[in-house]
Nucleic acid binder design. Structure first.
Lengths: 152, 152
DNA sequence: TCACATTTAATTGTTCGCAATTGAATGTAG
DNA sequence: CTACATTCAATTGCGAACAATTAAATGTGA
């Protein structure tokens, strides 16, 4: 068996894009932590709030589709947000299977307090906005190709 | 307040690179799942095995530094790998604080069975090796910049 | 040598993330 | 209208991930 050079060996940790993505996600999480602690949010909770700040009063399913999460993750998370008085959960009267998530006044107000978060992340990233946008678009395209394979 | 256009609003979910990375990591995990199920590994366990296939008989701390994980994550994970007879955990005689992780024969043998995993991922990614390598390098550079900020 | 700090893994408690299942509501084919 | 299938949220169980703490071993300075 021909020994592959280390820089090409596909079974080597440092050659795997998945590990790059995995470890970058954790690095982001650690940068976010102190910023979100001040808001009383975890990172996944922050993502849910981002969704709700764009459009309020949405069923759990819609949040799940945007974030690629299921009810097993969202139900307890949303209950914690409700316990923190940031959202209200009400069963839809039109379709009683659905639970609608609406922001409370405190939930709305938190958007202002969170306004500085993205620029702090940009600073920590230490690169230009256009570079980040380009990377983001590439990563999203890769993610969507991966998700397409899963759907088969 | 001037309303920002949606494509520039930094508080919008789809404009955030962190969400791109976060959701791509989950997409990778879902692609890996059926492949790793056949090996009896979870994705983090697979990462540990990748480390050990490169260098055996290493302390927990070294694994943690490579994967950016701490003992709170690794200790129970390594105990599960030990229960699956893939590794052996022995306290170092030179430095009794350290626990050395060594592959069992089954652990070594699993490397062959795992050989096809990277190419399956490459196929699912649906892009060229050079594109993936370029993206990987960009993401690693970003990760390292983020980790540098954390260390301050 | 002795006191003190550092290193290392383990432990505890909380929160994600997902598979699998459940149960209720809704949609649909005959 | 009645079966049957589908949709949706909730639940259960397991495996990460991490903060905070603990305990033991080792290193260091006076």
């Amino acid at each position: 068996m021909a020994r592959k050079s280390a820089t090409l060996d596909p079974q080597r940790l440092d050659n795997q894009i998945c590990f790059a993505v995995y470890s970058a996600a954790h690095a982001f999480n650690r940068v976010y932590k102190p910023l979100l602690d001040r808001l009383g949010l975890t990172y996944p909770q922050y993502l849910v709030m981002l969704v709700l700040w764009e459009r309020d009063d949405v069923p759990v399913k819609d949040i799940g589709e945007k974030l690629f999460l299921d009810s097993g993750t969202l139900t307890p998370l949303l209950k914690r947000l409700e316990a923190a008085h940031l959202v209200k959960r009400t069963r839809s009267s039109e379709d009683e299977r659905q639970v609608l998530i609406a922001l409370t006044p405190q939930g709305h107000a938190l958007k202002e307090k969170a306004r500085s978060v993205p620029q702090s992340i940009l600073a920590a990233s230490d690169c230009t906005v256009s570079e980040l946008v380009a990377m983001k678009d590439e990563i999203v395209a890769l993610r969507d190709r991966l998700n397409a394979v899963i759907g088969e």
